[in-house]
Amino acid sequence: MPVKVLVVDDSGFFRRRLVEIFSADPRLQVVGTANNGQEAVDKVQSLSPDVVTMDYEMPVLDGISAVANIMKLKPTPVLMFSSLTHEGARVTLDALEAGAVDFMPKNFEDISRDSAVVKHTLVDRVLTVARTRVGGQIKAAPVAKRREAPKPIVTDRGVIIPRARKKVSLVAIGTSTGGGPMALQAVLTKLPKGFPAPLVLVQHMPAAFTHAFAERLNNICQITVKEAVDGDKLQPGVALLAPGGKQMMVDPRNGGCVRILEGDERLNYKPSVDVTFGSASKCYPGKVLSIIMTGMGADGREGTRMLKASGSKVWVQSEDSCVIYGMPQAVEKAGLADDVLHLDHIGERIVKEVC
């Protein structure tokens, strides 16, 4: 059966263009359209679509309020369209917090062109969002099992030597669209003030979004979060977020810093988890705690392979707590995961591992 789509936008042109693109693909069926947020809420209840595409700026009821009401009345996966501006980024992050699964830039010039690439991207994203957990809702975490204390080493002379734990010099977290921003928020807000290790964060996002996202995280976290700039030092309790459209590499010079490079067109992701994780494996062999969380694709698999080979730890988010299991699944299927953790437990486990 085709995926049922409800298209919501106050622009008649944008609405019609989306309907044309979706209707041309046999895997999709447009079951309705709406030109304001309240109409969208009503039609979700009456038409039961599998996925909703949603504008954020609309009359009667705005997109964020519409998403919140949909999640309350009839949770349905929502793909937001947003402008590539700082304010657009803020609004999109609010929509994700309200329950939207993912977002795409709203670009009238791109959507007006008869481009096969644009059509493929739109259809593929809608199909992916439709397969996510309803409204991005996640099962509650099971009760965490109490971890046993490390067993001591007993020599042939009967001497007991405590088993030493490797020092974590860097925490590296990679995630993508499809639940990534809210997953990062859930983890980082659990880290205490005075956290003793530096962090590097890679979240697939457009360039206009990462600064607003870093600001948002910094305002709600006890640790410091900032969008990385070239030469930023790695400092305990400071999380550096890779800027959108560029690559972030870890550099051991000057006591440890990051280098921000122009995005290589040969790489699909800018920023790329593989690039950051791979560089970290060379700078801090055996001393990185790396975590791959919810998101589309397989970025991070090769970077974690390098980290694992150097002796570092690799954790992945559990399938039942992911909105989209793509990236964690790629790492787990490759046999690289040392542990699989529910989202609710990742923050507290980082604290136990590092502090």
Rank of each mutant, 00 (worst) to 15 (best):
M71I: 05
L28M: 14
G326T: 08
E353I: 08
D299N: 00
H204C: 08
V171L: 03
T128Q: 12
D299Y: 00
E262I: 00
K43S: 13
S82L: 13
P77F: 01
F195E: 12
G326Y: 10
V168S: 05
R15M: 08
V44S: 14
A116L: 09
G244L: 06
I160E: 13
R349P: 07
P285I: 01
E348Y: 07
Q29H: 03
S169L: 12
P198M: 09
L61I: 03
P243I: 06
S310C: 12
A334V: 13
V91T: 15
T189N: 08
L47R: 08
S272F: 09
N69S: 13
D338P: 02
P271K: 03
V351A: 10
V5W: 11
M54Y: 14
L170T: 04
S48G: 00
D344Y: 15
K166Y: 09
S176L: 00
A330Q: 04
P152Q: 00
G135D: 14
R305W: 01
K233V: 10
L122Q: 08
A172L: 02
I173R: 11
L96P: 05
K72W: 05
T33V: 15
A242P: 07
A40M: 09
S310T: 12
V288W: 07
N35L: 00
N268D: 15
S290H: 01
S312H: 06
T177C: 03
I111Q: 02
H86S: 15
E332H: 06
V200N: 02
V187Y: 02
T294P: 14
T53D: 05
G300W: 11
K166Q: 14
N218S: 01
V126P: 06
A330S: 15
A95G: 15
L122C: 12
D9Q: 07
F195M: 14
A172C: 00
V225A: 02
V250M: 01
P2G: 10
L18I: 04
A40P: 03
R305A: 15
G32H: 14
R349I: 08
Q247T: 10
G88L: 07
M249K: 06
E148C: 02
T132N: 09
L61V: 03
G37A: 15
T175S: 12
V126D: 09
K166F: 03
E353T: 15
G278Q: 12
